[in-house]
Design a protein around this nucleic acid. Sequence first.
DNA 1: CACATCTCGTACATGAGAGTACGAGTTAGC
DNA 2: GCTAACTCGTACTCTCATGTACGAGATGTG
Lengths: 192, 192
Amino acid sequence: MAVSSAGSRRRADAERNIARIVSAARELLSSDPNATTDDIARAAGVGRMTLYGHFRTRAELVEAAFVDALRAGERVLSSIDQTGDAREVMTRLLASSWQLVAESAALLTAAEGVLPAGRVRELHADPVRRMTELVRRGQDQGVFRTDLPTSWLVSVVHYILHGAAGEVRAGRLPSHDAADMVTKSVQSVLTG
Amino acid sequence: MAVSSAGSRRRADAERNIARIVSAARELLSSDPNATTDDIARAAGVGRMTLYGHFRTRAELVEAAFVDALRAGERVLSSIDQTGDAREVMTRLLASSWQLVAESAALLTAAEGVLPAGRVRELHADPVRRMTELVRRGQDQGVFRTDLPTSWLVSVVHYILHGAAGEVRAGRLPSHDAADMVTKSVQSVLTG
DNA sequence: CACATCTCGTACATGAGAGTACGAGTTAGC
DNA sequence: GCTAACTCGTACTCTCATGTACGAGATGTG
């Protein structure tokens, strides 16, 4: 997060620059978890020193980018139409969020490499919980398998998501095909 | 690979040290893709200078470790009983190799970060080809789904494998449960 | 318009890791 | 047991990224 927490108000240009930096960090770290502060500052169109004016350390910046991505994810998750059985909800969810989740794979790696152990899990406990609830609901409704633990099924969904992202990034899978393949594959695993 | 390629013969102790170094590299890089040459030399029980006597650069060492892991994988793949339909073969294959493939996930990351682009795919073209053939055979036999491309199915198998490895490493999944979950999940995706 | 806030270049300190140079000591193999 | 091959410690250079120090100039805001 930015240095000045709540006490004093920030100037508008500072606010704008912070947003730019976080956004650039999200973008760069999502394709290269080792992007340097210099890379990020440059991509944000600000000097490196400006960046350090807002984020004391690289770790602080990575966390800010990660939190930003999580917030975007939360926005999507909470806007999903929850009617119908769990299969339908899952399909809708994947259709509208697979790209987002997938893009953050490398960002997650970056966060894990830099943040104190456990902090990462702590930060995205919320989205994981929501996904877990959806899967469990499906199991309770009898539309998702119960011979595998809920937590494992949730994990597999993540792996498929991240994998698809990798394929797309590497240019081996056209982006518009990905959603369909992800959905079909996930549905198979969940229904057994 | 080692510096002296084919021309002159190596002394027995040198040969032994090379084996130790490669083995240590495989082990360390499999849990930390950023392990340093110093870490590896130390783990191999040799001086750093000995290591540099056999591998000019870190990249050369990483490649050697990667190739070594691939060879071990090939040995497993080629010893699998190929009788029965593709589902049975796949089950046998996963049972006896998931750990191996899984362990090499981080090693693969290390290789990708250090080797020239494309070199990695080039190196493990063989195992990928074998797995692809197995999946295609299943599709031809009518036991695996055909509504998703072969290459995508192969990829998903890899993701599930690597994901399981991550869970085991993180201590969230007991190692002896993993094989079963991987097998069930993969079977679901492949049969639709 | 005054001034606190913000920008950002240059320069520097630090630390980590790769790879090199040298050379004395050890060991395998004929 | 002689010799070439090998080991490996010390010490060095290079490069790269993080983070700090200083300070002059630009700009938003009351």
